[in-house]
Design a protein around this nucleic acid. Structure first.
Lengths: 235, 235
DNA sequence: GCGATTGTTTGATCCAGTTCAAGCCGCGCC
DNA sequence: GGCGCGGCTTGAACTGGATCAAACAATCGC
């Protein structure tokens, strides 16, 4: 059973969601892409820009580095990483993607994805074809502005992250990472104090410019100080 | 003597430039913002979106971190840094701005500048008021796309830089920085092999996540190996 | 030109985080 | 169950770059 492709509205104005995949789905109204998906909500009834929902199995790629930008994506359920793979097998993880986050925006510069997005667990992703986004942006000025806002937000975040990498020591990077993740889970209605940490130590390291060993040591240290309590895949 | 404010076109389709300020001005046709400044070039005669040209003295700020986004900027002549100042006096330099570069795009996320731009030498900067950019983007679809392209390009660059910061050792950061700067000067019609390096060691360090001492040592090392030759403010 | 100020180079020491290595834990699979 | 594998933790030694410090070179104001 797959989700329907290209029906006018995938669903009516969604305020409540049906029992979701693994209980981890985000409501469309809470999604970063909501203004794009439902650009004409009040004015002209529901127009849904999303044409496809894709399911991704753990480890599957949403898009590849170097592939042309065919669509914008919104994470509906699950957890992904957006990463820039290096030639040597190493990689830098640009950002972890939670339900409600937008993905693939960095391809607007060249029309080609400079990074790739990989599912860290089974995911559900909404897809707005690029041509459709372009057409809608032409017709609806506020949508163009929304798109600029999304990309600009990513830019500011990326700069902020680069600043974190240069100006802060390892333990501060890890603590800020935890606080940031806690906040983001919180914004999605989950507990800020007990949240999932579904990526591996290695991947946290690749995001923060540290080795897996250092990340592990720092987390253990935080735990021994009583600041956090670690469990399998959670804090 | 200041440049005129808000005349219909500041100048006719500029292919040649008059003897420029310190001989370092970029032609409008080579500017990243050109498609925005002259959106209707062929079709409807010259419409110039730029309303103001500002001169900045060395050390002057183009915009401040935390101030609302009132305009987009294009560097016409001179050299600036875009930096994120920290509370402790330290800062991270996001990017150095050469003639033809766009600035202030990272404010599209929140409408507030997360960074500031400071002139490293006397500069001339074109300014497109934000409201004007918005209006033009509504009227001219290609302009909206151009704006997305500019912001998306900055995003990809920023991610690439963050990757450089995490995945490469000091000497590689410096060499890549030099190669990149060389390329950028080259694109502007200057020599790729003998170019200006108008920022201080300290500032190179703040851009690359290194101390001034390390930058100086690495540059001296490159010179002693015969890879580069350093002169006052140049390579 | 002279002295002050600001930026650069070089040297010596130190330490945070890496690297290498070994054990551990949880989980899936035969 | 027991075995194996992938991820996590912990330990010990090493090292790249930071830090501290001092000499040096340009530039500016007078």
């Amino acid at each position: 059973m797959d989700l329907p492709v290209n029906p006018a509205p995938l669903e009516p104005p969604p305020t409540t969601d049906k029992p979701a995949m693994r209980g981890r789905q985000v409501a469309c109204t809470a999604c970063a892409m909501h203004p794009l998906c439902y650009p004409l909500s009040a004015a002209e009834g529901w127009l849904n820009a999303v044409q496809t929902r894709r399911r991704l199995a753990r480890g599957e790629r949403l898009y590849r580095a170097g592939s042309p930008q065919s669509a914008l994506y919104a994470v509906r359920a699950g957890f992904l990483k957006a990463c820039a793979p290096g030639p040597d097998g190493g990689r830098f993880i640009v950002r972890f993607l939670l339900p409600g986050d937008a993905a693939g925006l960095d391809a607007f510069g060249t029309g080609v994805h400079p990074t790739e997005a990989v599912a860290l667990e089974d995911c559900q992703v909404c897809e707005i074809p690029r041509y459709r986004a372009e057409i809608l942006a032409e017709g609806i000025p506020s949508l163009g502005a929304q798109l600029r806002k999304l990309i600009g937000g990513e830019l500011a975040r990326s700069q902020e992250h680069a600043s974190l990498l240069t100006r802060h020591a390892a333990s501060e990077r890890v603590s800020r990472f935890l606080v940031d993740l806690s906040r983001r889970w919180g914004e999605r209605g989950y507990s800020r104090s007990a949240f999932r940490l579904p990526m591996r130590r290695q991947e946290i390291g690749e995001h923060l410019g540290l080795t897996m060993e250092t990340v592990s040591r720092i987390l253990s240290d935080f735990q021994s100080r009583g600041w956090i309590r670690l469990s399998r895949g959670g804090v």
